[in-house]
Structures are given as C-alpha cells and as structure tokens.
Simulated assay, not measured.
Amino acid sequence: MRIRRGRRDAVHHLQPSRGAGAHQDQRAGALAMETISKRSLLAAGLAAGVAGLPRGAFAAQPGRKLGYAILGLGYYATRIIMPRFAECEHSRLAALVSGTPEKLKTYGEQYGIPETHRYSYETFDRIIDNPDVDIVYVITPNSLHRPFTERAARAGKHVMCEKPMANTVADCEAMIAACKKAGRKLMIGYRSRFQAHNIEAIKLVRDGALGPVRTVVTDHGFTIGDPKQWRLNRALAGGGSLMDIGIYSLNAARYLTGEEPVAVNAVESTDRSDPRFGEVEDIINFQLLFPSGATANCVSAYSVNCNRYRVSGPKGWVEIDPATSYQGQAMRAQLGGPPAPREPAPQPKNQFSAQLDHLSECILTGREPIVGGDDGLKDLRVIEAIYRAAREGRTVKL
C-alpha cells in the first residue's frame, strides 16, 4: 500500500523507497536508477526562466480538456498520476518533462505525446510557446519546487505542485508571488482532500456529529530504505520524515479541526549512527494547540509503519486506518452507539483524477482551488515551528 509519491526522475543514482510504506516508497526502491545528475537538474531548475510577457498565457477554450505537462517522471508520476488522466473529465496529458531521454521516449510513445511536446529540464522554458499545455504538474525533489514553479508561471502556465510545497516559508511565498504576478493559479497536491473517507470525516466534523473537536491523534510513518536516496539528502528534501510523510499528520490535523495552530511542542528521536540519518531526522513527534482549545498529537517517522488518525469530540469519534494511503482506507466511528465500521458516501472520481480535474475546473470557472498555495504555505509555517520547538526544547507560539 503506497502513501506518497516517488520523484526519482529528477535525481542521479537514487533509488527512493516510498512518500507511502515500504509499502510507501520502498515504495519504489526497486525502480531503475536515474541517469540525470543532481548537478544537471539543479542547474536546470535554478536557471532563469524566459523574460518578458508570457506568450503561453492562452485562454482555455470552452469544452476543451485542459492539458497537463508532467514535470518529473518518477514512480508517482508514471505509475500513479499519468494513468489517471483516462478517468478525467476536464484534464488530459499533453506534455512530458524529464532529464532522462529514455523516459521521454518510452512514456511519450506510450501516451501518444509527440516529440514536440517532450522537454528536458534545460529546454523546459520553450513550453511558453505550446498552447496545448495549460498546467504544469511539478513532481520533483522538494528543493526544485520553487524554481520550476516560477519558470512555469513565467511561461504563462498554471501550476500543480507536489507537497511539501517547498523547503522554506520564503520559497512558498516566492512561488505564490510568481503565480500571482503571472495571473496563474497555484494548487498543492493534497490528494487526500479528494478521497472519499477523508471527505466523509471532514463532513462529520463540520456537521457537528462529534460535537466540538477536542482531540486529534494522527500517526504517519514508513521504514525508509536506501541511504543514498534524495529524501535523506537535506539539500534536496529540506528535512527528513517531517518534510515527507509527517506532512500528512500535520495537514490532517489542520483539515479535521478546520483551524490553524497557535502553539507547537515537539521532540525528535534520531539514531545518528544509522547511515540513513546522517543529515535528516527519523522520528519527530509534535503537539498542536488550536484557538478553540482542541489539541493534536502527531507522529512522523522514517522507522515505523503507520498511517492513521482519530478525531474525537464529546459526542463521539471517527477514525481512518489506513487514512491517507493510495487505496484501502477503512473507517470506524462511534456516534451515539457502539463503535462500528462506516462507509463514506461514494465519490464520482478517485482521489487522483478528482485532484487533477479540480484544478482544471477552477481554471475554467474562475474559482480558487481548495488547496491553493496559501495552504501549502500554512503547512510550512507550522513545519518550521515544529523544527524550532524540537531544536530549542520549548513551546513555539504561532
């Protein structure tokens, strides 16, 4: 069972192990090693975009499926996202961007993408002249989210960016500013917001079925493998488990309470003799206090397999285990009677195609995404506070 994406296309000689269990990106540890060097990709990602007004700011034509360019052809992109376009009503796969020529050829032929719509990281800026591409979906190591988002915006393209949004609050703010300046929409890939069980849990809370939320308990982790993978490289990942799988615990606490935390406590536990954790953290447990008085106890780990949450109030509780996996979610609830399994209301689309179509629908109708850049920024602000609380051994107020 997988919970997060693998973004291996962007890194040389890295065999990620799954952002979803070993069971999560061990998720994809058996995949072929990448052929593009980190130096080459970083240079491409940080290169300046095309100057001047975006020639690519083409208006969406009514009735036309909006075209996505997938940037980064790792496991999550090729095995999870790209096959889902077949189920989309408003979105289609229109272009590919990769540092690996073999992947561009293989997936280009598989999905009927013409050579004119296949880009390297170095030639990516030419996408400004491609009217078939409306949206760029950035699925790369975290440190490259900002440069590619900025380049996509300068090319007049809307952006879907994987989570975490970036490595720092400053990077998030720059990404938001770039898209705002270009008049393009920015959405963050919080796919669980489009998953049926999570939608049901949020609805139960908002409808008052539990009474006021008092506690959230959420644990997310997987046993990470190859010490050389990019997720264990601080420069590429920005941190360890918290920047990868832990963001599911944080984001769930925020969307279940419907509030933003005002105070954070945290403690880290990392075996620095383990070759996997020379640069980043393994376990980081954190507590959040919300304005209503609700609290959240959260786990993030690279050495424990877990994926669950429970939200509780005076009238009862709801739990999902697994909660944010690619599939297989199971819900139980205690709502005025004994605990029992609960099936959510069916959704017309799975979480992946629903996420893709949501951004297209927002572009076509002028609405804002339910998980826009501001949502990604809010997570990063809390993440920075969590790291500070763990480092300084004190409560950090937000």
Rank of each mutant, 00 (worst) to 15 (best):
D207E: 10
N265I: 00
L242E: 06
S241F: 08
S241C: 05
L288C: 00
N305P: 10
D321E: 09
D207W: 09
N251I: 15
I202F: 09
D244N: 14
S241I: 12
Y326K: 15
A196D: 14
D282M: 10
E259D: 05
T270H: 04
T218N: 15
A237H: 09
P261I: 01
G211A: 07
F286A: 12
G316A: 05
L250Q: 02
P212D: 09
A263S: 08
G239L: 01
L232A: 05
I247A: 10
V216K: 05
R206G: 00
G221L: 12
A237Q: 11
F222I: 04
V280C: 07
M243P: 05
I245G: 03
S303C: 00
V311S: 03
G221F: 04
T324Y: 09
A266K: 09
R276P: 06
Q329H: 14
Q327S: 10
Y248N: 09
S241L: 01
P314M: 08
L256T: 09
R214Q: 15
V205C: 06
R332I: 11
G278E: 13
E268C: 07
P275W: 02
S292K: 11
N305Q: 10
L289W: 14
L288M: 00
D207T: 08
I224W: 07
R276Y: 00
R231C: 12
R310H: 08
A263D: 01
N297A: 13
L242N: 11
E279N: 13
S249F: 01
A330C: 03
R310V: 15
T223C: 12
R254P: 04
K228A: 06
P227G: 14
V264E: 03
S303A: 01
F290M: 03
Y309I: 01
I245M: 06
G246V: 00
R214N: 11
T257R: 12
G225S: 07
R214W: 02
Y248R: 04
A301S: 15
D226Y: 08
G293T: 12
A196K: 13
A253D: 05
V299I: 00
Y248P: 06
A301Q: 11
V262I: 04
R310D: 00
A196G: 10
